[in-house]
Amino acid sequence: MAEPYLRVEGLVKRFGPFTALGGVDLEVYPGEVHCLLGDNGAGKSTLIKTLAGVHEPTEGTIYIEGKPVSFRSPRDASDAGIGTVYQDLAINQLLSVTRNFFMGRELKGPLGTLRMDEMNKIAHDEMLKIGIDFSDPTQAVGTMSGGQRQTLAIARAIYFGAKVLILDEPTSALGQKQQMGVLKTIKKVRARGDIAIIFITHNEIHSRLVGDRFTFLALGQTIGAGTNAEIGDEEMRRLMSGGAEMGDLKEELAAI
């Protein structure tokens, strides 16, 4: 196996007396989908925000291609190739697809004019690469479905140099069919082979479908990790519910 693009070692993040992350390890390889699983409050959000440069770690180190890095701002992280697609997607509904795609990083000609035709073409082509043939990139994002908006945000992150793509629960607010659309998009990005994907989800089926490797978090600790083949269904359910035995839960429920 190649060297991991991103490696996290003993990451600790404390907010005052509260320990949000108590020593997390993570390895993410290019061309792989790494599912980050865990219940609410397990520390998933804190972990990705630390990777995205929003928080600075209290202890521990983040390595990119083997070299230790420290991010002081989201800008640092994105310059280092970490592209985060948050749940709210950072998208403007009233603006066109192209204007959203290039928001804040517009292609300029002399006098600060926009190279609109070129931008339209790039937006169209980049979205086509990962699965949506959008005939008119000048239409407003408000007319797109939730899944298409995900695709736009993912295509944008990749185009602007993301080597690690962090997807924060991209399927959680979508209908069944659109969830499948997003999973297809994830598969297509994976097939490029040069991008590492961190896929945060609550959904066991989704992670089974696209995941290569899993890391389970509970109460700020890594409670399990392994490849898709290594982890059986029972084990997976146990780890997802924070390590509690499903059998125990059944008994507890029966006792009521």
Partner: peptide
């Protein structure tokens, strides 16, 4: 349109 989205993209 959406101040926070704009800010997140570096505007």
């Amino acid at each position: 349109d959406n101040k926070e989205a704009a800010r997140a993209n570096g505007v």
